[in-house]
Design a protein around this nucleic acid. Sequence first.
DNA 1: TGAAGTGACGTCAGTAACTGACGTCAGTCA
DNA 2: TGACTGACGTCAGTTACTGACGTCACTTCA
Lengths: 211, 211
Amino acid sequence: MSVTVITTLGRMARWEPDAARRLQQAALDLFATRGYERTTAAQIAASVGLTERTFFRHFSDKREVLFFGQDVFVQAFLDGVDAAPPHASPIEIVTCALRGAAAQFPDERRVHSRARQSVIEQNPALQERESHKLASLATALAEALRARGVGEPAATLAARSGATVFEIAFTQWIREGEHLSLVDVTANVLHELVTLTAPARRTPAGRRRHE
Amino acid sequence: MSVTVITTLGRMARWEPDAARRLQQAALDLFATRGYERTTAAQIAASVGLTERTFFRHFSDKREVLFFGQDVFVQAFLDGVDAAPPHASPIEIVTCALRGAAAQFPDERRVHSRARQSVIEQNPALQERESHKLASLATALAEALRARGVGEPAATLAARSGATVFEIAFTQWIREGEHLSLVDVTANVLHELVTLTAPARRTPAGRRRHE
DNA sequence: TGAAGTGACGTCAGTAACTGACGTCAGTCA
DNA sequence: TGACTGACGTCAGTTACTGACGTCACTTCA
């Protein structure tokens, strides 16, 4: 079967373009309405006029359709590392990376991010994939730190801490009623981490702060 | 089909006992020799005289067979939290938790842990499961901290940091030639984390320490 | 201009990871 | 003794994938 499409320029194209993005959008919609497990890859594909086989040509996994395009976000992290000043300490480098990554999420993306996260939260298989993506991000970050001369285990430690801070900040940023930008939330959480691990002075850091 | 078994007491039993553990051992062996993807659940089951269906009665997943029994390890973490003194700070509580968990791995377990980890490292699907287990551990830890009055995001931050420290320490403990106990390695990595996030004094902490 | 790619898709057949329904039978307990 | 239970087997079915191969609009280059 072939589908002939008239593009905006009036020229003929054999296939409607942007298949991956269309599949992704359809998947998110279907997952949100019918649930992740109750929607098959074939259904997603059919809903945008494609076949199951084509779905799996674009995504290695059924789950992966929800994580399409994360590379640019990881790259923002890495670019942030490169943007850090030459003699910056590991935390300073991570601070730069976090700023770069957080900037990728302007407030307009909140609604979409919230919808996506809500789907993920409702399915263990998707949570698993997300955990792994976060771990991969930390691994990439650690390598970038090592490339800048940071030793082990400092590099891995700093990288994972950065990923953790981002995750917590993101969760908070998505919350209904949150008004701060992701960049600001991230900075706050990072500061919280520093005070948390700082040797105790007089206040028992982090205890009962929100009660 | 039924298999009659003569136990050590000489009495008849319908099934050979300890099916889950036998399946687990067989799975580890087969994964190590033939590879994870090239061994089916049916093969594992057949190798200990059971059927595929029974395999999936014991393990929700093919992957899960490698993570059987982790609950006692998570519990050791939680017990460590309970064992912490009443007014301990979040990091102090986490320190106790780490000690409790690390104590679960005496040096005799090194060889087995190494073999298991080697299988996991060779397969993305297993790595994914491991990432998720670590994340779940952190979630459980965070809840235990919250139950002790630690607020957010301090609880989540401390919990994830603890999980990260454990992971790094475990990786190092497993390495060929490592002679320290897991308890000691864990303490070292935790100390490294504290110095890493400490505001810089004169030495840029963590840089070029291992070169 | 036309012949030889190329890329994005469809079709078909197959494997393996699960799942539900149901049957079996030694051991247990009333 | 008889009802019940728990751990297993059997069978049939669904869905997530994978490999092989065919199709055809579009591109490239002689």
